[in-house]
């Protein structure tokens, strides 16, 4: 067996395990009929679709497998930032002093999944919405803009989020 076949097998197994976990979560019953039906279904679907689930050109396991403890910590930090920025947004709704502006900047994260999570979380948090994500180039609509310099704006928007994400996905 050469390296390529092993890589195919690993991707197939990860897809099947993920499918089976989702089946267990949704069906929430441990009768033998449901367990066997879920196993057959998840094997069949993952044989058909594992090429799309994990792309061939992914570098290694480390680029898409998060570290579980760090991921949970990140989710709690995200909830905290969500409440903080929402209180700021409430102030803006009532006094109306805002300065919306489009800014462009780059990110240092490498894997596609981490970039997707970064753009999702900057859509959630400090009054910003990701308009476009093109390789490592982000276009962001920022609600409380105070600078137009790309690097300063990037640091202000990404903030500590990128540091936390680096710990989750390498």
């Amino acid at each position: 067996m050469d390296a390529k076949k092993i890589w195919h097998l690993i991707r197939f197994l990860i897809t099947a395990v993920a499918m089976y976990a989702v089946w267990l979560l949704f069906s929430a019953s441990f009768q033998p009929y449901s367990l066997i039906a879920g196993l057959i279904g998840s094997l069949l679907i993952s044989a058909l679709t594992y090429q799309e689930f994990i792309a061939e050109h992914e570098a290694s396991l480390g680029s898409f497998m998060p570290r579980p403890i760090q991921l949970i910590v990140f989710l709690f930090i995200l909830m905290f930032y969500l409440y903080q920025s929402s209180i700021k947004m409430l102030g803006a709704v009532f006094h109306g002093r805002v300065n919306p502006r489009i800014v462009h900047f780059r990110t240092r994260l490498r894997s596609d999944l981490a970039r997707m999570v970064l753009s999702n979380s900057i859509t959630l948090t400090p009054g910003t919405i990701t308009l476009d994500l093109n390789d490592d180039h982000l276009t962001v609509h920022w609600f409380f803009c105070n600078t137009s310099h790309a690097k300063v704006a990037g640091e202000a928007v990404k903030g500590r989020m990128e540091q936390h994400l680096k710990r989750v996905w390498l």
Binding site: Y83, V93, V98
Partner: peptide
Amino acid sequence: FRFPDAYSRLQAGALCGTT
């Protein structure tokens, strides 16, 4: 209802609605 264009409405509605 307060902000004048679609982006600002989306900011306020999506952020406060999600919270």
